[in-house]
């Protein structure tokens, strides 16, 4: 119904037809939505992709039912510290992490379902002043944290009983690491973006810091989302959360940048600008999957970009229930999760 009431044509060449509403999850608790994500859940021999929703004091797991409906399976109740982020673990079943804190992450917890005991559990993974966290393949979690002048970049392995005793540390750069991305096609490589706009590369096996490369002063506050290695170059998808509409393309929302790790030289490959009509500086909060990016703009509109074309390909304006607050890609097919502040999550097929 909501989809039918949206204007069919938003801008020249941009139609909302490229996003089709598939289903809606409505949380009756009335709690304010903080984040949304997905996790694989396997119980009684059945493996399903479920939706995870977070509000400040609890996290809920939703499984698909018949006729595009969703049912809440379990709610983990958290303590006094508010939930601020869901940290999905790629290619992992029955496990998801959450970050809790006030303005910064102060704690990471593991939420899990144990098929052996058929019970839902939670355990503490890490505490500290945590600046960035990312779930890695093979049930691992990387985080950067600060204690005075010291920065620690740590990888922990996650088990059903919580974190394993042995963590691995990566050599920290001097600058604070604000985001991480695994490198596709290169199993032991990890990249990060820093507070002073550099890209750093680590060897995950040895913990070595291999290279630090500057992104460029003309593009402040870059956040890395994805990276892949090809033909001797490292391609990194960066977002610029404080993008500004500009005819000269000087302040794009997303960029694909090619780095030569041997020389630390870089070259922009494709830039994706803000959709027309979004004037003024925008704060982008988004997600990247393969070559697609999605972000909520300051106006409460969700924009989708094709990063290879360098174009915004779909817009989802605020619905009847209000502005969009969150957006994430599901790991399978082109499915976009879109959350409103009242806890309603809509699933769109792109």
């Amino acid at each position: 119904d909501v989809a039918e009431q949206l204007p069919p044509v938003l801008h020249d060449g941009l139609t909302e037809e490229s996003l089709q509403l598939v289903s809606e999850l409505k949380d009756s608790s009335g709690s304010c939505a903080v984040d949304v994500s997905t996790m694989w859940w396997e119980a009684a021999g059945c493996r399903e992709l479920c939706v995870v929703t977070a509000c400040e004091s609890s996290v809920s797991l939703w499984k698909p039912l018949a006729s595009d409906r969703w049912g809440k399976v379990h709610t983990w109740q958290l303590g006094q510290i508010p939930v601020i982020q869901i940290v999905p673990l790629p290619d992992t079943c029955n496990l998801v992490c959450i970050a809790l804190g006030e303005l910064e992450i102060g704690e990471i917890r593991l939420l899990l379902y144990s098929s052996e005991s058929d019970s839902f559990k939670q355990s503490l993974v890490k505490t500290g002043t945590i600046k960035a966290v990312l779930g890695l393949k093979d049930r691992r979690l990387v985080s950067s944290s600060r204690s005075g002048q010291e920065q620690q970049v740590e990888i922990v392995s996650l088990l059903e009983t919580g974190r394993s005793k042995d963590g691995q540390t990566l050599m920290p750069p001097e600058e604070t690491v604000l985001a991480f991305a695994e490198v596709e096609g290169m199993r032991d490589a990890l990249v990060g973006t820093t507070a002073l706009n550099s890209i750093v590369i680590w060897n995950l096996k040895t913990g070595q810091l291999l290279k630090k490369m500057h992104v460029g002063y003309s593009y402040p506050a870059s956040i890395c989302h994805r990276a892949y290695s090809d033909s001797g170059l490292l391609f990194v998808v960066l977002s610029h959360p404080h993008a500004k509409e500009s005819e000269s393309c000087g302040n794009p929302a997303f960029r694909v940048v090619a780095f030569n790790p041997k020389t630390a030289r870089s070259r922009g490959v494709v830039s994706s600008s803000l959709p027309p009509g979004h004037t003024g500086r925008q704060y982008l909060e988004g997600d990247v999957k393969d070559t697609l990016a999605a972000a909520v703009l300051t106006s409460g509109t969700i924009a989708v970009w094709d990063l290879l074309l360098g174009q915004c390909t779909a817009l989802l304006p605020p619905g009847l229930a209000g502005s969009w607050a969150l957006t994430r890609w599901a790991p399978t097919s082109a499915c976009l999760l879109a959350g409103q502040q009242d806890g309603t999550v809509c699933l769109y097929r792109y």
Partner: peptide, 23 residues
């Protein structure tokens, strides 16, 4: 991207940087 923009490219950059970087 041409090689002249980015300098000499090595297809084996990860192993080469790992050999050069401090342990």
């Amino acid at each position: 991207c041409s090689e002249s923009d980015l300098g000499p490219i090595s297809f084996n950059w990860f192993d080469e940087l790992s050999a050069e970087a401090p342990p």
